[in-house]
């Protein structure tokens, strides 16, 4: 299954957020598409991102690298990048690599949109 991406803007109590809904497999082949999307959003001035990973079937270290790259970019603009994920198989990869300490991970998009630091 290929990667699917869609974005929408949401206004929450903490301000405007851009939700990036990701579906399918994020691997060495598809990760560049996600990277492009995140770079484009930041270049267009969206600095508070919520990446919804509920539809992701597969994530590898290339995908993790893209998410870390996205975090670096939004932080350069004092922004934020939050993840939404409840799937144990995906969460395990964040735990193994210690990235649960780097990314705020939420159970719902609503919670991520409402969150503040």
């Amino acid at each position: 299954m290929d990667l699917s991406l869609s974005t929408r803007n949401v206004s929450g109590p903490a301000g405007d957020r851009t939700v990036v809904e990701v579906g399918g497999e994020i691997d060495v082949y598809t990760a560049p598409k996600l990277r492009e999307q995140l770079v484009e959003l930041v270049n267009d001035g969206s600095y508070h991102l919520v990446v919804d990973m509920e539809g992701v079937d597969f994530l590898d270290s290339t995908g993790l690298g893209v998410l870390v790259g996205g975090l670096k970019r939004v932080r350069a603009h004092e922004g934020s990048l939050r993840l939404v994920c409840n799937q144990e198989r995906i969460l395990k990869i964040f735990r193994i690599t210690g990235l649960t300490k780097v990314f705020p991970i939420h159970t719902t998009v609503e919670e991520a949109v409402a969150a503040t630091d």
Partner: peptide
């Protein structure tokens, strides 16, 4: 190289 190391880190964790 960075991605290379991260890949190995994931394998050794798994």
């Amino acid at each position: 190289d960075g991605e290379d190391e991260m890949g190995l880190a994931v394998i050794s964790g798994l």
